[in-house]
Design a protein around this nucleic acid. Structure first.
Lengths: 237, 237
DNA sequence: TTATTGGATTATGTCATACATAATGCGTTT
DNA sequence: AAACGCATTATGTATGACATAATCCAATAA
């Protein structure tokens, strides 16, 4: 009965509630960084780590398993674990489950798409081959008639813009798009984005291809901005 | 001693070499998706899963541990594991250790930065407050004299552009920048990027701020493109 | 009655041990 | 010299035990 009121006592030093595995994980990551290890290098065996860090093999394994999950190491039977150059996007793919993401993040991601597609213009303009342009022309040729204000064709939208990503030639970007696709589709389907209301300055897919073919980098970039304008309108009024 | 030569037998059906944990992990992820679970919902206890899937608790725990690592669930004592809205960028932060990434990925990431900063122009232009602009002016005022072709000041570069990300107001983007910063710095330091050679059309930070203040969205976007031109030059010659 | 206390309970966290399995190397056999 | 079998090694899986934090609930004291 003396002073069991721990909660009221001051001068608490904020004990870390992290689990053992958390600590070991961080220790290992620090080790990777400080030791300047390169992909292919080996890290100590589980049992060695057990002794080095003074915890059970269970904890070591759970920590290693985490590194494996984020792609920093890979393990084979007899050989042990080796450093690996992580595939950054592989991770996103696993954790990006649209119906679990909150609205704010989804909105951020959709906005990120706009940002990327505009900024990507310069890559596209500089790297598009005649074959790429031909393919784009092919795609718009089979396009549903946009003048009729028909239902927004998500699949076609994705087809055209997907080709643009591919032209960009940046693999991280390409992966990025395929990963974010479920989120895009989810946003489209959920009605967060209003259907198109083409005003006089509207730039169609067809216009874009024409400018890509005969215009210049600046024109193409600004055209892309106008093409995406209806989405921006949701944000800036 | 009879027929131990299993290896030579034909009609092999490509046995999957994935471990038990791999399978359980995928099973659980599929479960999350198909069950349309929302953040906060509980998933079965470890022992229940043990029975449901017919594997040991070890395997269940390792699989759960992976989901925990990619931020899909979190676990507390007594309560069990619950669904969580994953922080997409949190993972990248952990796995992005520049000296482990390969050159190609580093180049992609740096290129991605250019793409984002150009595309971000519209967000910046539409969301910059007078206070933001004042702060930018403050930053360029303390800028080392760029006319002297001095050493490229990475810290200052990051300070200015960091503020731009902040103005964009997109939290995913902001996180993205802080995460990619180590990679940027690494690229700068490693000499993959050549030092600036300002040509006649060079747009300085100071110019950018002026245009942001008195120009329009198109001008600002194109100015940003010119500002980053020296980096692009490395790619398109 | 109300608030506090102190188990009892529950599910995750950690430990220890044993065995399974795949990869590798080495020596024996033919 | 090539093929086979065996021992070795380190990760993968299973099991049982106990530690620990969170929670509930009943007993107790004000």
């Amino acid at each position: 009965m003396t002073d069991k009121t721990k909660n009221n006592s001051l001068n608490i030093t904020a004990v870390d509630s992290s689990s053992l595995v958390d600590k070991v994980e961080q220790t290992l990551i620090d080790l990777l960084i400080s030791e300047k290890l390169n992909p292919g290098d080996q890290i100590p065996k589980e049992l060695e780590l057990t002794e080095m860090l003074g915890v059970s093999r269970t904890v070591i394994r759970e920590a290693l398993n985490r590194l494996k999950t984020i792609g920093l190491i890979e393990s084979t039977k007899r050989k042990g674990s080796t450093i690996k150059s992580p595939d950054l996007l592989f991770l996103l793919k696993k954790s990006l489950i649209p119906n679990i993401l909150d609205q704010a993040t989804l909105k951020d991601i959709f906005e990120l798409r706009l940002v990327i597609e505009i900024g990507m213009s310069d890559l596209i303009y500089n790297r598009a081959t005649p074959e790429d342009i031909a393919e784009l022309e092919q795609i718009v040729a089979t396009e549903p008639d946009s003048s009729k204000e028909v239902l927004f064709d998500v699949d076609h939208e994705i087809k055209f813009h997907g080709k643009l990503y591919q032209i960009s030639g940046n693999h991280t970007l390409i992966d990025f798009q395929t990963i974010l696709l479920p989120a895009f589709r989810y946003v489209y389907d959920s009605g967060m984005i209003k259907s198109p209301d083409h005003d006089s300055k509207w730039v169609s897919h067809q216009d874009l291809v024409k400018i890509l073919k005969d215009g210049n980098a600046n024109k193409f970039r600004n055209a892309m901005r106008k093409h995406l304008d209806r989405h921006f309108k949701g944000y800036f009024k």
